[in-house]
Write a protein that binds this DNA or RNA. Structure first.
Lengths: 250, 250
DNA sequence: CGCCTGGTTGAGAATCATCAACATCTGTGG
DNA sequence: CCACAGATGTTGATGATTCTCAACCAGGCG
């Protein structure tokens, strides 16, 4: 068990750097409870393990493997997916820096999904047993984790609605607007970004075939909503794209 | 605020009876942490409020209303649903006795869904603030609620897969097998039961139109998998129905 | 009794999947 | 550095599942 290294100075908080502590991680407003006091953050810091980065296509965890930790993404991007009866995969979410995954494993003490890196990624491992113990002492932390889990439920429910009610164009527009918002949250451009996932992954996530995804990208370009160059996307008409999407709040 | 009435004697634990305490509720193996000691159950009992039954089509809570409690179903059945942009509803789940709903509201302190009774139903209201406090003192309770939320996440993810990958027949078979299992859990018949929801609700939940649901019911009857009389369903060939469904474990 | 909601059945239409061919990108090894 | 192979993405033609629209039936309730 590597003990975490404490750095009280204000070193550059690059998320790839595995020596950054929670206190000076630039993502901490996303994954940490705002209300935690500095010395409480240190206690959280102590249970968090920062492993070496995982490469593209490597697993963070596999479906049905024993559950022990949840993970906060530090850099890169991961997909979570379940295998269906007939061995196909169904992607249930993409996870970006500051977002937390693995909570589906808590209920049955084994992972309900697999998680695989879409590109070289670094994560903070948060042993759940210890998190639970610490949470009994820090009510704010407990509340925060209830909230994170609740958010996961809400976003799953939104995906359910999307899959059930919306057309291919609405689905893709919704994904793009959602990604845009999540990039903005990390102070990145909300209109020009790189999709870390393949077209196949997008189709899988949205319940569409690759071909349909490709065609809809084509239509969006013809309508001057987007300019697309491989995985690079530039949103040209944000408002129109949003109005196509299933995302309501302005 | 009515104070809960304690009944230490072994009165008949009918779930409609609002005076039954957690300790002698016959559903407590479903909604309570197994490991809780008797006097701890009493403490939980004290924060739980047992309101009067809600009638068919009445709301338990509405989307965007302030969140304060989660609810355990005591009798009846409820549906949870979200309104889409254009005012349509999307059902995200049906909740039967022993099951817990409302957890989607924790994250933003307002309900992400509405919940409406499909028939006269009774619920136990569990004020979340107090549950949080009690959980810091009873680690088992905290763990139990993490698990319940995690189960909700897992089942939402299974629904995502179902909606995205499966045909109309697979969807309906899956719902029927799932209901069957949940009735069995409550010691009711797993092959003969009454659907509390309308065909429209089933279609909505499964991402199908009423007509399609009706046709698939018809086909299943022609294949002698089911006999259907309105809302009464009798499963004639459980194994075949299960093999059509997306439910794997035997 | 008749209205209204909920459910069933039929015919035609539309979206998206499938199948297939082709283009492009990636990376590996000569 | 180039060439090639495999993976990934695009485009086209065809077809199937499911939706839409419409008519009709059944049961419950005033």
């Amino acid at each position: 068990m590597p003990t975490s290294i404490k750095l009280k100075d204000t070193m550059t908080a690059c998320p790839h750097n595995s020596h950054v502590s929670c206190g000076n991680c630039r993502l901490n407003t996303l994954c940490l409870p705002i209300a935690l006091r500095t010395d409480d953050i240190s206690r959280l810091d102590e249970i968090i393990q920062r492993g070496k980065p995982i490469n593209k296509n490597e697993y963070l965890y596999k479906q049905n493997s024993p559950f022990s930790s949840v993970y906060a993404v530090r850099s890169g991007c991961l997909k979570a997916y379940r295998l269906t009866n007939d061995g196909e995969e169904q992607i249930t979410g993409f996870y970006f820096p500051g977002e937390i995954l693995g909570m589906d494993g808590i209920g049955k003490n084994k992972h309900n999904c697999s998680a695989k890196a879409l590109e070289t990624s670094a994560v903070c491992e948060i042993p759940f047993e210890q998190l639970g113990e610490l949470s009994t002492q820090l009510p704010e932390l407990q509340k925060h984790f209830f909230q994170i889990m609740s958010h996961e439920i809400s976003s799953d429910q939104q995906l359910i609605t999307l899959l059930s009610k919306n057309s291919a164009e609405e689905k893709l527009a919704t994904l793009l607007i959602s990604l845009s918002a999540r990039f903005a949250q990390r102070k990145l451009s909300s209109t020009k970004f790189r999709l870390p996932m393949s077209r196949t992954d997008i189709g899988n996530y949205l319940g569409l075939t690759v071909e349909t995804v490709s065609r809809v990208f084509g239509r969006f370009q013809k309508q001057n909503l987007l300019s697309v160059d491989g995985k690079e996307v530039k949103i040209l008409d944000f408002d129109e794209l949003k109005s196509i999407s299933a995302i309501s709040e302005i």
